[in-house]
Write a protein that binds this DNA or RNA. Structure first.
Lengths: 166, 166
DNA sequence: ACAGAATTGTACAACCATGAACAAAAATCA
DNA sequence: TGATTTTTGTTCATGGTTGTACAATTCTGT
């Protein structure tokens, strides 16, 4: 039991990551509250932003970007479509695919939501200098690459988050 | 509409935070996979670790620490109790309170889970130097304080995450 | 002491997310 | 061409999370 560090709380890597995780959690809660007036939740915002930046994307590609399952989108997208925020148009070239696009009203809501999120993030991150901020982003990018390296991810045939890339 | 920054993608604070959020997401997915052999999910680990560090804590205090609702714990704790990982003992001083404690078997599982999590975090954070790592943690701590400042949180009387402190 | 307020944990309905099984369409390959 | 495999999206059962309503207990103020 004592051949390696039994309790990792004095390990800087460990407790510093715990701080990252907690910051994400409180940011998520704050964002959820800030989005309430628009009747949106963070997952909805993720969808809308990706549609804003990549109009015409398919549901599968969107699921890959968001790291969620296709079934998730199959449940959420009809709701947003009924609210008139987006449309799903069949692709004549490949009739399996539904291409997603924001409606004008959806674009409007998306811009409002982005403004809310941006304001929240800006206020929050003002506690760090630009240099610190950039360093944090750089470290996080390295972490993402480390965790998505194909040889450390090796996984099965699931429908769900983190599939093998075509 | 153009009185402020319409699209914040060239804002360093914004896109660097997006990197933080994504890193947390992939870390969460990796942790969930790494915990599968123990038949635990990240929320279970959060509970066990807090019981390990604060034996005898009440459900309410635990919910406050985890930033989840009491009802959440009322659903999860009986499962873990049935698995023999913890016990809920009534407090003779205050008969409303159930005090939580790990069983020996629960302590054993918790130590295994912590080892798994610690290994994952250590491998991941090795992509950053100790100084970078500490700076990240410091920035995150500032962010947490900013987001939990009482005057910016002002909220209602909900049962759920982020209540006013007694 | 006692009435009203506050706190702790539970029960339940609603919603969200996941993974497996499925149908339709396209790609592959003999 | 025709058979097999792959890809895309849906459906459904399961389980996780939230918020509300509630019973039991303790606290507060008079």
């Amino acid at each position: 039991m004592n051949k390696n560090q039994a309790l990792p709380w004095e390990n800087p890597r460990f407790h510093n990551w715990i701080a990252v995780a907690r910051a994400c959690q409180v940011m998520g809660l704050s964002l959820a509250r800030a989005l309430q007036p628009l009747d949106l939740k963070p997952p909805h915002l993720d969808i809308l932003v990706n549609l804003f930046r990549a109009p015409g994307i398919s549901q599968q590609d969107l699921a890959d970007k968001l790291l969620v399952g296709r079934s998730n989108l199959s449940m959420l997208l009809p709701q947003l479509e009924k609210r008139g925020l987006l449309v799903r148009r069949g692709d004549p070239q490949d009739r399996r695919i539904l291409r997603l696009e924001l409606t004008p009203s959806g674009t409007d809501v998306t811009l409002q939501a982005i403004a809310i999120q941006s304001e929240l993030i800006d206020r929050t991150m003002k506690t760090a200098s630009t240099d610190e901020c950039n360093l944090v982003g750089e470290v996080m990018t390295r972490i993402i690459h480390e965790l998505t390296r194909p040889d450390t991810v090796e996984e099965g045939q699931a429908d769900e988050p983190g599939r093998k890339k075509a």
